[in-house]
């Protein structure tokens, strides 16, 4: 389990990183924390010819509040978010980090890396869609912002061009009543199902919780219920709401996990996420 050979490039700046990516094309991969990439390289399931290391780029790590929004630099580690004081508006981010792998993974893995890896069950991907994050990306043509809902195209496939780099993630909307919960047989594993809820997540329908699910579709799946569910943001109606969400989503049988069971997990986890969000 030793990786194939590659050439190593250390970028000192975002501009240099983008230049390198442009020069090297599809054979290059960006490495930040490397917590997903290196495991795949050790299995030789990924074998980039070039690695562009952006970990030494200054100014890409850190958490800032700008007005009501939260800006998180791409190199910010999961653990940095875990221990940051983001109460009350964005406490959901800190609380969710305990679901991300384990401590020694969280100390190295980054928000930018997680989003770029585009695993549909990954917590950052789900949170980004739930909270309508804007992904700030640098490329040869300059800066562009991608809405989280447009970022994920399929399993491990994102809208990033090979020569683009995530530099920052902006969470524009406060979410004091949001939560993510998930289920796996063993702690720290990728979830069979993950459910994230923002009780105030539908500005157009303030009484209906916004739900984003992981593990039921190739990418994080937002679920919005119709006006029949107005008023389900309060305790007592979470069970009814969760059942409706579970009944609405399309789920297929999978190796080892039937659609019926997965649907049951959706119902359970949506309800529990609602309860946790209400108590937040």
């Amino acid at each position: 389990m030793k990786p194939a050979a590659f050439t190593y490039h250390r970028a000192g700046s975002v501009r240099r990183a983008v230049e390198l990516l442009s020069e090297l094309g599809e054979d290059a991969k960006v490495i930040a924390g490397g917590q997903s990439l290196v495991a795949m390289m050790n299995y030789r399931l990924a074998r980039p010819e070039h690695l562009v290391d952006i970990a030494h780029v200054k100014g890409l790590a850190g958490i800032r509040r700008v007005g009501g929004a939260l800006h998180i630099g791409a190199l910010t580690t999961h653990h940095a978010v875990e221990v940051a004081d983001l109460t009350p508006d964005f406490a959901v981010l800190s609380r969710t980090m305990r679901w991300v792998g384990h401590l020694p993974i969280r100390t190295r893995g980054t928000i930018g890396g997680s989003l770029a890896h585009a695993d549909g069950t990954a917590e950052w991907c789900i949170l980004a869609v739930l909270l309508d994050a804007r992904i700030v990306v640098e490329g040869p043509g300059g800066t562009r912002r991608i809405a989280a809902s447009d970022l994920f195209l399929g399993p491990f496939t994102s809208a990033l061009e090979p020569d683009e780099l995530i530099v920052e993630v902006v969470f524009p909307r406060r979410a004091p009543r949001a939560a993510l919960t998930e289920y796996a047989e063993r702690r720290g594993d990728f979830a069979i199902v993950a459910a994230a809820v923002d009780l105030d997540g539908c500005p157009e329908a303030p009484d209906i919780p916004l739900v984003v699910l992981g593990g039921v579709a190739p990418t994080p799946l937002p679920v919005r219920l119709g006006p029949d569910f107005t008023g389900t943001t309060g305790p007592g109606r979470f069970g009814e709401f969760a059942t409706a969400v579970a009944d609405q989503v399309q789920i297929r049988d999978d190796t080892g996990v039937s659609a019926h069971y997965r649907r049951g997990l959706v119902r359970t986890l949506v309800e529990r996420a609602c309860e946790e969000a209400a108590q937040a």
């Binding site: 299995y43 047989e185 063993r186 702690r187 720290g188 594993d189 990728f190 190796t255």
Partner: peptide, 16 residues
């Protein structure tokens, strides 16, 4: 074989 890594072969941890 369907369990070539510890992702699939679920050795329990201190939480289990």
């Amino acid at each position: 074989p369907l369990a070539p890594s510890f992702m699939e072969y679920k050795v329990p941890t201190a939480m289990e």
